[in-house]
Write a protein that binds this DNA or RNA. Sequence first.
DNA 1: ACCTCCCTGGCC
DNA 2: GGCCAGGGAGGT
Length: 276
Amino acid sequence: MPELPEVEATRRHLAPVLEGATIVAVEVRRPRMARRQPRPADIPDRMVGRRIRRVGRHGKFLLTGLEGDLTWVLHLGMSGRVSLARPGEPEPPHTNVVVVLGSGVEVRLVDPRTFGFVAVYTPEEFDHSTPAGLGPDALDDLPRAPELARRMAARAVPVKPLLLDQRFLAGLGNIYADEVLWRSRIAPVRPAGSLSREEVAALRRAIRPTLEAGLRSGGTSLDDLAYLLPDGRAGEHLFRLRAYGRDGLPCRRCRTPIRREVLRQRSTFFCPRCQA
DNA sequence: ACCTCCCTGGCC
DNA sequence: GGCCAGGGAGGT
C-alpha cells in the first residue's frame, strides 16, 4: 500500500542513514525488478563506488541522488517495502534487491509481487522516464484551488480516478484518495468538471491534513503487514482511517454505514450520506 | 477513456 | 479453487 505517506515515512528513515554513505555492493536478485532499466547491468555498475547525496521523493517515487549526476529510482508498487539491516540479520522472503553501504548497513528492497522496481538513470534517461511525467507532489507542491479547478474543468472523468492519476497529482493512492474525498464530503463518482469552486477548495484543503495524518502514524500497514517502516515497525494509521476498508461500519461523522463500490476496477469506500 | 495484465500470498 | 489486494503500463 505504499502511497505518499508510506513512501515519505520510509524516506525519513532512510535519509540520515544513506546520505553521505558510499555504496560498496549491489545485488539485483529478481531480474524483473530491473525491468525499467534499459541495460540491467547498469544498476550495479552505476551504483558501486558512488557516494549518496540527497534522498528525495516525488509522489510515490523515492529519488536518490548519486554522485556523477545519476538518480537512483525506487518504486514500491503494491507490496514493496524497504528494510534497513545489518549483514547477517535474517532476511525476509522476497528480498529482491540488496544495496550494501560502506558502513555495513544493508538496504533491502522486499517486494513479493514485484510490481515495484529499481533503476539508475542519467539525466537524459530520467527525462524520458515516468517520474519526469508526474504531476505536482500532493504534499510538497500542492497547487492552489483555482489551479486545480482549471485542470479539472470540463472533465467527465469521476473525481476519484482523477485523484489516482499520477499525472494530475502525484502521491495519492487508493486509500488516501478515499480518505480525501470523505474529508471533503465529495462523492467519488462526481465528474471532476462538475465540482463547484467551493467543492474544489474543500477537496484541496482536505489533501494536506489527510496525508499528514497518515505520515504522523508512520503510514498505513494493513492486516497483511506487507508495508512496514525500514526498522520493521508497522505504520499505525489503519485504525484512524475514516473511509477506506470500513465497509458496513458507521461513518465517523453521521453513523451511516460506509459503503463499498467498485469504480474503475478499484474498491471505493464512501459515506452515502455525507458524500451524497 | 477505458480495460487487462503483470505477480504472489492470504483468506473464504 | 476462486477471489481479493496499496500501483502502473500498454493496448484498444
